[in-house]
Write a protein that binds this DNA or RNA. Structure first.
Lengths: 115, 115
DNA sequence: CTATTATTTTACCATTAGGTTAATTAACTA
DNA sequence: TAGTTAATTAACCTAATGGTAAAATAATAG
């Protein structure tokens, strides 16, 4: 639970229940009970998961009558996407011989890259 | 520490030391001492971080004399990239009015009960 | 006001995570 | 052979996580 933004996001995503909640929110706003329904888990457990998601800013919450509707807030996912960008070259097409590539990098003789 | 693949990867990435280790490995293979050097942390702590990264298959390890060199294994990052793909539409250009979009989704076919 | 529904808060518990120091194993070197 | 360097294991500590059940809040309905 380091307080930096990226750690908080990754750690929020490291739980399957929370990822399922996010997935469920891709079809629109949901109440806590709605979100809880698919899970064999107490309400307080769901409340806690929602708190984690909210602190990570992956969801936002409103108030409508006695409901506290949740909706997706995708920005932190965008940050993760950006972070992961620095590694994308390591799995993309031309680098299927990663070991050789890394060895080259290490040797410091990295010049002609593959197409 | 749920055992599903994605949770393991996210949880491995949720620590800044481990992300720094991965970043350090983008320039090639490193020994444990090499990796430990930038951190104000004991060797056993680094060993533990490496174990987490290895279990998540984010690194691979070899043996060379008394060294156990580490190298990047990017596949799990690719999986995360794929997972995040389902959310990409929520932050891309045309969806800068996300709230409206989600509200639409929720209403299904605009059965207006909105204020 | 009372009752009901939705959600959160308050303890509480077991397990895991991230760190430490001290001891151990593995391989090289003089 | 003994000594040094590289890394791991063992034992331990503290704090955080993910769950529970029971009580407390909040808003609506009768």
């Amino acid at each position: 639970m380091p307080s930096d933004h990226l750690s908080q996001t990754f750690s929020a995503l490291a739980d399957p229940t929370r990822r399922a909640i996010l997935a469920s929110l891709t079809t629109g706003e949901k109440t806590v009970s709605d979100l809880a329904h698919p899970f064999d888990m107490s309400m307080p457990a769901i409340t806690k998961h929602l708190k984690v998601l909210e602190r990570a800013r992956l969801i936002e919450r409103g108030r409508e009558a006695q409901y506290r509707p949740c909706r997706l807030h995708p920005e932190p996912l965008k940050d993760i996407d950006t972070w992961i960008g620095q590694y994308r070259k390591f799995w993309e097409a031309s680098f299927d011989r990663l070991e050789d590539y890394l060895q080259e990098l290490q040797a410091g003789k990295k010049k002609g890259d593959n197409p």
